[in-house]
């Protein structure tokens, strides 16, 4: 059975070790298709997630508590199909022992949910193998990102979240020499929105860091595996908890440290902040990003038109032009 998830901090190794197929929704072709009739303030991604969950009756769906919008989207969905939905409590804090215990307990609870949906009890050996395989895959994806276009890389990362595979593009297209190095930072960038990356590159820039939700931020470094046979849940919990880098964390300094290292190392000259309308968490970072990194920031709101509108293209072109 497929288990759809909407946050990269849901431990997919744990799902797979239960004999089920974790599928990150960012790759789904039917996510967010068609006009969404949004009531005021509803985040389009959360609405798309709700519609998606409603149409996949034969699968389980994992929401997380990362944001208020998703928590309440879960409330809406669980009102009609409670048996298929799981709300994973991602702690916002990360500096106290309680936060790690919350994470660990959620993994245990997720295990019970998965077993109630046809999964089997995981073995430590199998889990260790899955962790190792996925670590290797993430490493390959990071390498791949330097050799192909931003869209190809985004697609490869989303495919990995979808089925665990690493698919190397037939014709990797490295970014044009002399183009402006930019980073894209922000929330979910779904399949229907990847053409945004082409628009940016067509304007004369290259994305040297994709820090959207399913981008490089989601590629966890290799876990510590020394205790996996004694404490498999602990190994998964620590692997995710120690490497989670997201805007909902309090304080959010981990996100800024993570970004800072990469922006400097890759010579980034400007940031594109990708925000879904109604997403307060990312939107509130515009000014802090500018002040912290002293880089120009272009705020782009996820548009109703998949893949970018002429207005959006125009703004991107103007932004890139300022660096020339």
């Amino acid at each position: 059975m497929k288990v759809f998830y909407s946050s990269p901090w849901v431990p997919v190794e744990w799902i797979e070790a239960h004999g089920l197929q974790p599928c990150g929704v960012w790759f789904a072709e039917d996510l967010g298709c068609g006009a969404l009739s949004l009531s005021a303030g509803v985040c389009a991604f959360s609405e798309a997630m709700l519609r998606f969950a409603e149409t996949h009756h034969d699968s389980a769906v994992i929401f997380t508590t990362a944001c208020d919008q998703m928590r309440r989207t879960f409330d809406t969905f669980a009102g009609s199909q409670p048996a298929h939905a799981f709300l994973f409590n991602l702690p916002a804090t990360w500096q106290s022992p309680v936060a790690l215990r919350i994470f660990r307990t959620e993994i245990e609870r997720l295990g019970r949910f998965l077993q109630a949906h046809g999964g089997h009890a995981p073995t430590a050996k199998n889990l260790a193998q899955i962790i190792e395989r996925r670590s290797q895959a993430r490493k390959r994806l990071l390498e791949l990102a330097t050799r192909c276009s931003a869209r190809q890389s985004a697609e490869a990362m989303a495919r990995f979240h979808w089925d665990g595979s690493v698919s190397v593009p037939d014709h990797p297209t490295p970014p044009a020499a002399g183009s402006i190095p930019l980073a894209i930072v922000g929330g979910p960038l779904t399949a229907s929105q990847w053409s945004l990356l082409q628009t940016i590159e067509a304007a004369g820039a290259r994305i040297v860091l994709n820090a959207t939700e399913s981008g490089e931020r989601s590629l966890l470094p290799a876990f510590r595996l020394e205790n996996v046979s004694d404490d498999p849940i602990g190994a998964v919990a620590r692997g995710y908890f120690e490497n989670c880098v997201d805007v909902f964390q309090r304080p959010n300094t981990r996100l800024y440290s993570w970004l800072g290292e990469r922006l400097t190392a890759r010579g980034v000259r400007g940031l594109v902040l990708w925000v879904h309308t109604g997403c307060d968490l990312w939107r509130a970072e515009v000014q802090t990003l500018r002040e912290t990194f002293r880089l120009p920031v272009l705020l782009l709101e996820a548009d109703a038109v998949p893949g970018g509108s002429p207005r959006e293209a125009n703004r991107i072109q103007a932004f890139v032009e300022t660096f020339k």
Binding site: D68, R71, N89, T93, L281, R283, E291
Partner: peptide, 25 residues
Amino acid sequence: GAVCDDFSAIAQRLETLGHSILWWE
């Protein structure tokens, strides 16, 4: 944690502006 995003985001901005916060989950 399970609080309004607006508030969480504004409080984070406050901390970034130099007002240290004790966060509890």
